[in-house]
Design a protein around this nucleic acid. Structure first.
Lengths: 147, 147
DNA sequence: ATCTACATGCAACTAAGTTGCAAGCCAGAA
DNA sequence: TTCTGGCTTGCAACTTAGTTGCATGTAGAT
């Protein structure tokens, strides 16, 4: 979820994380995008401005996820996507995965059709959250296909 | 989805697949379970009765998925789960993943809260299907935790 | 000056799945 | 019968995404 208003340094500090250049760059890369990114995409984004090691990236992502600043999404393929965590400004929302090009997009939170409360309490299992993923062909791929 | 009524040999044949012993065993292993299985679980199930190679298993699973007999589900971790494909008797349904033990369970189709038709036509992307996954702690793990 | 904690990097490893190629088998053609 | 082509299976090597172990660097505390 794009967010120019976010102060990444403050976000890191308020979660007890030293705002190192790499952490800030990783969080910024995720925050500036309008869609969740795969680790490889984040790495490319960070590397366009500074040097970062694969392991460091994964460790930073792990930290950010642990603190809730970033959310790790399963994409239906074997690579996770990383998007901004939920806040007032970024409410929980479903995602769309293009099965042709693998790009994941965020959908309107209004589209999230699940009343999680209705689902809790059925049986004794504890439901923590729901993950709704639509799959199909994205606009770009659909256009290319019909050309 | 458990199904004692299914005739696995006929299912294979009606989809143009030679009903070899291994294919039948794989399909049966998936069909007899009440929850989607990871490839490693299917392999263990098949191997309890006959010998099968990893590659052969994945190839058979690939075939079954291609024919729609089996559905490949993303579990939120990096391993796919395989469950029976949708039919009249096995309608589309949401799943539950225990983040503690990794077991995936099938939920009541009634719980699938998405009206896929409402979502089509928004924008120009093509939506093929929805994947709804609840995450939390399963009954077994919840019980162990409170002991 | 040294000690400790944390941040980062490099190399090696892991898990899940895939690819390439060879061997076995069976049906139909010659 | 033998030969052929096509399918099914197996083995080894590879790939991708991510993880672990260990070494180095750097900053602040003692």
């Amino acid at each position: 979820m794009m967010c120019e208003a976010c102060d990444y340094v403050k976000m890191l500090q308020s979660h007890g994380l030293d705002p190192t250049p790499l952490r800030e760059a990783v969080l910024r890369s995720v925050g500036q995008e309008s869609r969740p990114l795969a680790a490889a995409e984040i790495m490319a984004a960070v590397r366009s401005r500074m040097s970062i090691n694969k392991v460091t990236l994964y460790r930073i992502l792990g930290l950010l996820v642990e603190k809730g600043l970033v959310k790790r999404l399963s994409a239906g393929d074997r690579a996770f996507r990383y998007g901004m965590g939920e806040t007032r400004h970024h409410p929980s929302h479903p995602h769309f995965l293009c099965t042709e090009c693998g790009v994941m997009e965020c959908l309107d939170p209004e589209l999230l059709p699940v009343d999680i409360k209705k689902c809790r309490g059925k049986g004794k299992r504890v439901i923590k959250h729901v993950d709704v993923r639509f799959e199909g062909i994205c606009e770009r791929c659909a256009k290319v296909d019909t050309e």
